[in-house]
Amino acid sequence: MMGMLGDIYSVFWLDLRVLRRHWMSLIATSLVLPLLYLVAFGYGLGRGMAVDGFPYLSFVIPGIVALTAFSISFNGAASKLQVDKMYYKSFDELLMSPVSSYAIIIGKALIGMVRGAISAVAIYAVGLILAPSMLISPLFFLILLLSCFVFALFGVLIAFIVSSHHGMSNFSTLVILPMTFLCGTFFSLNQLPAVAKGVLYFLPLTHSTELLRSILLDLPFPWLSFAGLLIFGVVFFIGCKVALRRSSV
């Protein structure tokens, strides 16, 4: 077990080192889009509106926190891994080392989780200034970390599967972008027909948004979404393991 933890840290260590070298630019750039969403949707379009009985700003901030966790964790894990795998071939060094595939998957996901959590917490802090009625709760941080880890695993899986820059770009346009706008970040899923709502529950961001919103707005805890997020995590992890098994001996 200690050997496995050591291996996970060894894989994580490299990406952590890179993060330490470029932390300012990486975090600053990751905050631009969520802050624009916050201003455009929270202050611009949503001023004076109420959704599900809450002021729109209070409603949308948890969604933007979840969205930030999703996009930064996914890209934080996927982008460097894809470059290392396809262009620099440095990922092969890990495959040729005695480090286990479990340690590679978890170690590579951890950097996405850390980057996603830092950015999401920064947006949450801005949100607290704009909407002080939101709760500060340890459960929020736990669910945020879980969400970030699941999304980072998703990023690792896609980096393993997609074998070209073009393919990654297509995946972002066809899957990531629709998730950004459809998973309850900016509007309540209660406004949708039951069929559409059902379909959106097959996307991981929907569950993370529901969980974080329920915690920050003091709503009943959505256990179904918690289970959903866990299931997505297990599915992504198994997918990573299968993809890694196919790519080497």
Binding site: G3, R21, Y88, K89, S97, P98
Partner: peptide, 30 residues
Amino acid sequence: KEIGVVQQHLSLDRDLTALENMEFHARIQH
């Protein structure tokens, strides 16, 4: 455990120093 490999493409991490690259390889070789 028996082999060392130097690939045709330079498979070092360009965001790290020579020392850090060596440190990383030493770590993953236990």
